[in-house]
Each structure stands twice: as C-alpha cells, then as structure tokens.
Design a protein around this nucleic acid. Structure first.
Lengths: 346, 346
DNA sequence: ACAAAAAACGAAAACGTTTTCGTAAAAATC
DNA sequence: GATTTTTACGAAAACGTTTTCGTTTTTTGT
C-alpha cells in the first residue's frame, strides 16, 4: 500500500541503501551480481523512485510549466499537443495553466510555477499583458523562459513566432493577384501585437500595389472579440457602407466564417461578388462551403519548436553555459480554397 | 539567484528554522512580533517554499495527472479546460498527457504519473485499451482514479459519463418524430463502448417505434476512424445502396459534416431529401450550412465534475475515510438546427 | 517575591534520495 | 606470501521542509 523505498529493498537484501541506489543507476562500482539482485527485486516490488526526494537532491524537476490564454482553441490545442508530445520524448512532464486572457491570473500562475520549481516556462501572453515584471522575475532567477505566438518584444528571452506582417501581406497580395481592387480588412483588437502586425501587412500590400489605403474599410469589432458574431456584424456594416468592395482579409478564420455566413444571408455571393481570406487555418475552414482560403499557422510545429528551444536552454543552464535569446520565425502558408476562386465572368 | 530558503531567513533574523516555518504558517506558538518580522522578510526576499521538500514531508503533491486520447479535439479540450480551471481553484496543478489512442502509451503514462507521486489521476481511455491492469494498479495503491467519457465498466472506480444509449435513442426518436421512416446509422468502431451504446440506442428507438431494424443501413468506416472523409465515403455508399433513406443518425459531428458535404455534392438536399443528426455539438456544427442538429455533450461540465469527484476522494483518503466508487451521469441535450428542419411539401 | 501556568522558541528527527569519500575485501603483481 | 592494485561496498551528509516534544522565558496569581 505504501510505496516501496530504497530502504526496504536494502533491508531485504541485507545491503546498504547506497548500494541499492547505485545498482539501480548502473554505477560502475557495484558488482554485476548485486546489480541483478537489486534490479530483480526492485522490479518485482514495482519500485518507483520518489520524485520529490530525487528532485530535492538533484535540483531539477523534469517538469515544465505552460501558460496559454485559452485551451479551447484549435491553434492553441495544436501547440499544446506539440509541446506535450515533444516534452514526453525528452522525459519532461508539462503542467498546463490557462490565463483566460487575464494579466492578473497570468502573474499568479507564473508564481505558482516558480514555487513548483519547474525547470522552465513556456508562455503565450494574455491580450492585456503590458507589464512584464513577472516575466523578468523568471529571467532574473535564471530560469529558462520561452514565449510563443503572443509575445512581448521588450522581454529578453527566446521567442517562437510567425511573421504576422508578412503573412498578412501575402494574404492581401493574393486578393490583389486575383483581381480585387477594393479590399476591406476585419482587424483584431489593439492588442495583442499580432493584430497590429496583420493590419500593417495588409496596408503595406495595398500601398505596394498602388491601391489606396482607405481606413473606412478597416473594421474592428466593438469589444475587440474575435467571434463568429463579430464577423457577421462587420460584414453587415460593410455591405451597408461600401457597395464596391470586392475582397476582405479577415484577421482570423472564425470571424471570416461569420462574415461568410452573413454575406450568404444577404445574398452576396462568395467568391463571385466578394472574395474572402481568413487567417489561422482552423479545421472547420476546410469543411464549410464555400471552403475558406486562409493562412496556415503551424501550431503543432510551433509547440515542438518552443519546447525544443526551452529544452536547449535548460540543458545549457545545467552545464553552466551561456545562451543568447533566440527568435525563431516559422513559415506560414497560403491555403487557397473556394472563397477566393477566380470567377469567370462570361 | 539561488532560491531563498527558510535557513537564510532564520539566520538573518537570528532565530531557528523551526520558528520561521511556524511563523509563516501562523502557528499559535509564535509571537505576533516575530511573525510579522518573518513574514515581512520573507516577502521582501520573495521567498517561495521548495515544493519538493514540502511534498517529501507532507506526502501530498497537490498535483494530479490527466490522460486523454487526443488533445486537439473540441470535446476534450473543453474537458481539459474544465479540469484545469477547477483544479486551480482548489490549489491543484494538472499534468497533462496524451495517449494518442495507444494502450501502450497509456500504460507508460500511468507509470510516469505514479512515480511522479500525483495525488490522483483522471483518465479517458484509449480506444484499444482492453486490459485494465495498469488501472487496477493505481487503485491498489489506494490512489484516487476517476474515469470520464471513455470508460471501462469493469474497473472499480468513479466515473463521469453521459448516457450514450439514451442520447442516441433521443436523437433517433427526433428523426422519427419529424417523419423519417428509413433511418441509417453511421456508427463508430467496435471500441470504445460509446459507439456500441450509441448503436444500441439507435436500434432500440427504431424497434420501440415499430420501425424495422435493417443492418444494411448501418455503416462503419473502414478503419473505424471518425473523420470527415469517413462521412463522405459512407454517404456516397449509402446513396448508391439505398435510394429510400430519409434520415441519418451519425455517431459524431465531424463524420456528419463529411456526409453533409458529400450529399450536397451529389445533389441530395438536406433537410429536404434526407435529414441528418450528429453527436457532440462541435462548434463548427453551428456555423456550417445547413447547420447541424446534434446532441450536446457537456464537455466543460464533465471536466469540472470529474475533477471534483477526484478531489472528494483525495480528501477522503487524506482523512482516512472510506469512499464507494460513484458513477455520475451528465445530461445531454438535443440541439435542433437546420439539418432536421421539417420541409413542407407544398 | 515565589511558585505555577502560559507563552515562545529551538533541537532534532524524519521524509527518500544521491553522491562523496573512506574502508574492507578480492584480485593481481612480484 | 607479502605488497600493491583493483573492485565492491557502506557511512554519512546533504537537499529544505514540517512537526513533535522538550526547554526556556515570560506572565499570572498569591
């Protein structure tokens, strides 16, 4: 009933605890004979080292902390999966926490993880996080910290991101390439940074193609929420305000799908009248009708990459090596689907 | 740089480690004066108890393990969210592991969690888990174990489930109520249990309504996978084989959406020609067109409930009370949408 | 002022490991 | 067979807490 300890094994075999410990870890100064005796008994008693005792001695927990703003989200759950899978391969466990887009919670959770003595922390910031003291505290403790997707440029740690500005540029360019002249943008809130960058990418693409930038074509949902309804509302307004729009670049797929639905309801044809491109490549974008052209964000890869960077830094610190913070930018990909198919006008 | 310890605080204040420890935990045998001195210094040094030392002494880790077959899944990520949120409220951290629907991995992960000395384990089984030794091992160690959704009836532990048979019955009954006479079923694989129960609910509803059960109307995808493509393939076969079918009850939403798409491609109208009902209420079911009638599975609530049951058992064991395993059945709800709207024939 | 009671503190053991260093036993060398 | 070298083992400290129990100090009552 109570877990087996080294001591019990030692007593049964009439040898010392030290020898048992060393036998199990294949120290060279234990004879083969006792090694096999010890290992056999350990297995038959189903011995499992007490991780607390181990970690107390060795100062490493083989555990990392992960903070995401929201668990129920296709992109983030893919990231989580990437992290968890990769961590397990390297013998690390992942403690997961959800900040619910709240800075206050995020701060508390960092504290929690620190007192849990995790070996490192992976984090994607809450939207309203603009103070970075809690993050700098982690760095000050010389504990590896890697940020992904929703990052703060000011914090001096490694980051794994996509190039939102470039991806948005590509998306907009695609609309232009297939003939759109009046392109609207349904943008995200003022924070996180990602929204801004996507907006800037959109604007740059217009200007680079000698299309006028018209700020009245940029829509932001009332509460900055990225919901299905936000897409519906913006689409309705857009059709009321601007009859001549022929393309929309939307900040995120869910909003794009809302817009798609509303346009359909209003009798506006996609892609015939208006072409739409989303962002993130949510699974559902491939199965709705018309299917949604979008930018693929490599969630799983981002999770893997973020963990591997963290792992490198954990090992480096263990070996007392210096490491410089790195920023890794992952490739995005334009996924062409029906919502931007060229409609022949004959 | 190195974390602050009780010893350092004690030395600075010229008192013993014991007193410091007691002061921080508000023991009655420490004077108010020293308590405030200790607490102030602890705060200014940003002292955080070393969790390993604490846990080594107290024998509880304030950590639980969670194993799910798949993280990237709307239903499961909702469950995860419910568990993580509820756990945090009670001061517990969650270590998350993904079995990838593999029994082998699941077994290893149970071992991992046990050696990590978690206070309890939450698990939803992999499809091919049919041996329960690893689970019984947990129970034998008197460590709380709660299974949810994909359970094994044979294992003597608490369970949180929905009544799949009844839910499937309700779904089928709904099709019957709105006039369907020839109802097909796209079922899941032979495991998990849930598929079987849904199939049985479907059959019972037919028989209770004096409709013949025709096994040729029951389709199972080749590899037992519940994918979009599986829905497309089954739909195609169905239309080839049975011209007279007017309703389909599908094992899960994603497959239903695949079927929906294929029917549309084949020129079969939903709901006019064939009515479809899914299962699980994936988010996308509400935004596709036609929107999909389905059975709502309360994922978040299931997560909350599962954690709370586990928590109860953790506390009970701590207090050396006996607890009998409980099975908690959560309510499902029929969500009526366009895919089963009644089509007036005039 | 003195004993008794109450309050405040500390010494030490314990939790289960890991690892250093010293020593005993066995093997090798001449 | 005596000495050295090699091999195998164990004692003990350390990691940072918590908690019991004994001791000292202060307060109370007379």
């Amino acid at each position: 009933m109570k877990p087996v300890t080294l001591k019990q094994i030692a007593e049964q075999l009439n040898i010392s605890v030290a020898t048992v410990s060393k036998a199990l870890k294949d120290y060279p100064d234990v004879s083969i004979k006792t090694k096999t005796k010890v290992k056999d008994l350990a297995k038959s008693l189903n011995y499992k080292p007490n991780s607390f005792a181990v970690h107390l001695r060795t100062k490493e927990s083989k555990t990392i902390g992960l903070i995401v703003p929201e668990i129920v989200h296709h992109f983030f759950s893919n990231i989580i999966k990437g992290i968890v899978n990769e961590a397990e391969k390297k013998g690390y466990l992942v403690i997961i926490l959800q900040s619910n887009e709240s800075y206050e919670l995020e701060k508390k959770q960092i504290d929690l993880l620190l007192s849990q003595r995790v070996d490192g922390i992976l984090i994607s910031l809450a939207n309203n996080t603009s103070d970075y003291e809690h993050l700098n505290q982690v760095i000050a403790l010389n504990k590896p910290l890697v940020m992904f997707d929703k990052i703060a440029k000011m914090v001096s740690c490694s980051k794994v991101i996509i190039d939102d500005r470039k991806a948005a540029y590509d998306a907009t360019q695609h609309l232009i390439d297939i003939g759109c002249k009046r392109i609207a943008h349904f943008r995200g809130a003022l924070l996180p940074l990602n929204s801004i960058d996507r907006f800037l990418g959109y604007r740059k693409a217009l200007l680079d193609n000698n299309l006028p930038f018209d700020s009245s074509l940029v829509y932001m949902s009332e509460f900055g929420d990225m919901s299905f309804e936000a897409g519906q509302i913006s689409a309705k307004k857009l059709i009321e305000d601007h009859k001549d729009v022929d393309g929309i670049f939307v900040n995120t797929d869910l909003v794009a799908i809302g817009a798609l639905t509303e346009l359909k309801r209003l009798g506006v044809m996609v892609p015939e009248d208006i072409k739409i491109i989303g962002f993130s490549n949510w699974f559902m974008s491939s199965v709705i009708s018309p299917s949604l052209t979008t930018i693929d964000q490599p969630g799983y890869l981002m999770g893997e990459t973020a963990f591997n960077q963290l792992y490198k830094e954990i090992i480096a610190i263990k070996n007392k090596e210096e490491t410089a913070p790195q920023t890794i930018t992952l490739e995005t990909k334009l996924i062409k689907r029906e919502s931007t198919e060229i409609f022949s006008k004959n």
